[in-house]
Design a protein around this nucleic acid. Sequence first.
DNA 1: GATGAATGAGCATTCATTCAT
DNA 2: TATGAATGAATGCTCATTCAT
Lengths: 200, 200, 200, 200
Amino acid sequence: MARLADPELADRRRRQILDAAIACFRRRGFHQATMQEICAEASMSAGALYRYYASKAEIIGAIAEDKHAETDVMFLDAARKGSAVDALSLVARDFFQKFADGDGALIADIFAESIRDDAIAEALHKINARSTAYCIEAIKTGQARGDVDRNLDPKQAANVLFAAIEGIGLRRAFLRESDPDAALADFRELAQRYLSPPHE
Amino acid sequence: MARLADPELADRRRRQILDAAIACFRRRGFHQATMQEICAEASMSAGALYRYYASKAEIIGAIAEDKHAETDVMFLDAARKGSAVDALSLVARDFFQKFADGDGALIADIFAESIRDDAIAEALHKINARSTAYCIEAIKTGQARGDVDRNLDPKQAANVLFAAIEGIGLRRAFLRESDPDAALADFRELAQRYLSPPHE
Amino acid sequence: MARLADPELADRRRRQILDAAIACFRRRGFHQATMQEICAEASMSAGALYRYYASKAEIIGAIAEDKHAETDVMFLDAARKGSAVDALSLVARDFFQKFADGDGALIADIFAESIRDDAIAEALHKINARSTAYCIEAIKTGQARGDVDRNLDPKQAANVLFAAIEGIGLRRAFLRESDPDAALADFRELAQRYLSPPHE
Amino acid sequence: MARLADPELADRRRRQILDAAIACFRRRGFHQATMQEICAEASMSAGALYRYYASKAEIIGAIAEDKHAETDVMFLDAARKGSAVDALSLVARDFFQKFADGDGALIADIFAESIRDDAIAEALHKINARSTAYCIEAIKTGQARGDVDRNLDPKQAANVLFAAIEGIGLRRAFLRESDPDAALADFRELAQRYLSPPHE
DNA sequence: GATGAATGAGCATTCATTCAT
DNA sequence: TATGAATGAATGCTCATTCAT
């Protein structure tokens, strides 16, 4: 009588829960949002939800990874085709858009959580290492091409630039300035000046 | 004979509560830390604590302002004496030290809280406006002197640089890299390259 | 298979809570009885109770209405069949029985609460208007028949008689005189003399 | 150096506390009003207040007696001079005025408290016995004179009439009808008809 | 697989009362 | 006498999680 577990259904349900949780966490933060709210948002009973995620912490972990991972996909292509600044701008633009969409507080929550919680930090470090690796690659390519100052340490520069993207996004969310294009312009100017070789 | 209400005592108690709350919030975050923990940390009964702060939210607000305001004092002097980069470095150094001291998650919490809560945001905007004003001044002075590129918009540049400080601090906390001098070196290089006039 | 929310269960639980609350409120009053006591009396956890009533105030409101409404049912029949005094006596008897059963203080609490709280007052006014309407009808019928003095204003008389019932009940509870039949005799004598046409 | 306790001061302070407590209890009820509120209303520190009353319960007891006693003074004179109805009307008028002044809920609280608390009840019974005695006297005088039906039991009648006064006052407070003269008219009509001998 | 009622420890907050000054 | 800061148990209420159906 019993059918085997349908893995597609499980994936669908997990996605449904994550989306609901993201919506709730945006509005209220990880620790203020309740499981009941998430259940309601996901149109799902508590029992059903707990079949897919064993605890609130697990959902938080899943979302942190999820948010961090999204950016990754587009990087590689862009990095080869254009300059380092153009590739980074693509990432930055995407990131700023999230802030414009109301993800600012959630991203800050993820920072807080990953600073405090080693398990989450570890998961995010892996994702971050990959993104950084692409960026380092792009910077090295730029240095080879001559658009990027050869005196810069590629890894250090990659981290500084990611930090700048995050900082600009956060600060603009704090200041209620939500135009992602303005944020991007700020970032491009910073990146350009930071990366350019002297006497350009 | 009647003893009059002692305003010094009130100040001392408030400080005591804030310090205890900061310790708890660092470890556990605003919404996970309990009032009982704060009371214990402050060696104070719940009743005593509530004489000085009417609610947990009020403590959160007070700490947010407190943390934000700390940096301010030193800025003005530094800005007149040295270059814009040197003045900013002073602020940055101080900020990075907080991360090294374990304030990273708390600062992220403050970002999250101020993005979500308009009342807290408003209070912080005032404090931030003052800091930014000093920085803008320093940049203008640098432009007059010729160490700062005249093509930069001072206000925009000030915000970008603050954003960079915050981003670098957060990212390093996330990566468990706690050396504030390394962070400062990263920031100085970024600021130098960003602010310098071309053909230097 | 999914079980649908059972509305009967909800009704049962609500009744169970109300009964427990009435028992507690009788003994200790609205504001001295604790939710824990009510939970214990209802053999229910706090969480379960709060699924059915959102707050203590809501329970107080529900009980106030409940107590007030109980009398209503029997009136109409009685009013048609017998004299106004007989119909009123039925209500009075029922009311005095409540005092004999220990409801006196609770009824006084309901008065206090409804005098102070407009929301509760409003709800009770509706219920009261219905009871009064039946009584007015009975008095008018009596006037038509000739057992009731035609000089009396029916509405005014109805309110005076209800007031007398309440006053007698309260005063007897205060005096620890709990015999409902003695109370009823007092009331009948008063009502008879008050309503009778002169020269009878 | 130390002066002996000044008994006048003590009386003044006690009065001050009682007045403040009455004001608070009116607004919020015995068990919802806090000692802090009473202290503030009395412009007195908690320590000072507790020198004069050992507990909140003691204040409640004192107020209950106080409220009940107020009526007493005027009765005796009136009872001798006019008819029983006139004497009772004086008391009733005074009582209805209290309701008009906002004492309704407090009076209901006193009923509740005295029904539940034997100590308070006992104290009030004494005061009540005195008032009732005066009323009984007035009724007997009326019976002797012939304005009061000789078939009525004087004690029973006195209690019924007091009950009616209380019931009318309470019910009007509940209905938000605050005109004391209208209440008095209701009562006079009731008392007149209740007390009058037949064939008048 | 899914439901949603139930749990109960835990939470922020209050308040009658005390006591050092 | 008077003050008012302090106490801390108790309050109304919440919520992550479980489990019988």
